[in-house]
Amino acid sequence: MKKVLSAGNIITCLSCIFGLIGLIIYAVNVNSEGFFRGNRVAAVVTFGVIAMIAAVVVILLTILPVKGGAAKVVDLLVMVCKVLVPVMLMIAAMTLLANRVAGFGYIFGANEDVRAEVATAENIASAMVAMVAIGFDYVAGIAGIVAAFFLPKRED
């Protein structure tokens, strides 16, 4: 239990949860009425899922009872996955941001004529949801980075 509930695993778990929330909010964003309806970005899902799988792998490998040389290999895998989690989440966040930023510009930053047409309540809501999704991905990524500073203790 101690191993499972290690600080690193808890933060990794939080990272996974935030990433999942980010994916759910992204799914809401593309399926809801508004500026970004139907605007799917496959990479967001792909990288988000990879990140979550990596996070689960970290947790599972952490509790795997191994010793000696096998433990070294497992530790290496854990390290790789610990780096993979935040990197994948950052890619997901940045990819979604790259896709949505032009729309944010039209809705919030364009001239009056454009905003008069585009900055409807629906579109603003859609933009806000997109921002929240991006935000959760970033937070998940930061959590992943923090989790990387925690290595599992192995009992000799």
């Binding site: 940045m94 980075i145 990387a148």
Partner: peptide, 16 residues
């Protein structure tokens, strides 16, 4: 742990 954390940090900064 510190090295790994910094690796994750800088790798994330790199992709950003």
């Amino acid at each position: 742990a510190l090295a790994l954390g910094l690796t994750a940090t800088f790798a994330s900064v790199m992709v950003i």
